[in-house]
Amino acid sequence: MNESMDFLIWTKGTAFDIAVTIFVIGVILRLFEIISLGRKQSLAEAKGTEFGPGMKTIFSRSVPDLGTFRRQPLTVVTGYMFHIGLFVSLFLFVPHIELFRATFGFGWPGLPTPVVDAAAVLAIVGLLAGLWHRIMNPVMQKITTWEDWLVWALTFLPIITGYLAYHRMVNPYPVILGLHILSVEALMIAFPFTKLMHTFTVFLSRWYNGAMSGRRGVES
């Protein structure tokens, strides 16, 4: 029991500090790496504006075109399932919010645990279905790299260990909780250097797309 407690304490202390540091510095560095490349201002007479259309595309790209959805519904459905499930489990689970409050000094209201529990299941099912789809779909086979498998595993581990810990399905409890925290730390450390960065860069890429189109009078 003592050893498992020591493990838990280490994951909550030293390991957590290291992971958060790498995550924060890494993300800032990566965003700087991208934005500092800059882009040339277009000299062509504008037909529309950039900022507004860019902001609009940030939201509008969350909704797929119907024809494309019909061609590949599983990508969209599994994508929605695990993104929503992850978001709810991560940000609206009361113990997580308490952790934010303890770390940053502020928090927000959470959802009742049965709702969060359902969201976790949604995320797990979505991720598993997404994995199956990635294995079976010829297009995905063609473009999938080792990094895609890695980020899948890094995303799946925190949610599955969190689920097991919450339901006390592994004994002793401190071990599974420690593994849960450790898996989140692995996710945070890998985050800035992998496709997990899309969490932040998606706002940039959608904005650039919308803005460059908007300037030409195109709704994208």
């Binding site: 063609k142 980020v151 960065m197």
Partner: peptide, 8 residues
């Protein structure tokens, strides 16, 4: 940086 190899 944003591509997640979704194939859409």
């Amino acid at each position: 940086s944003s591509c997640v190899s979704c194939g859409m």
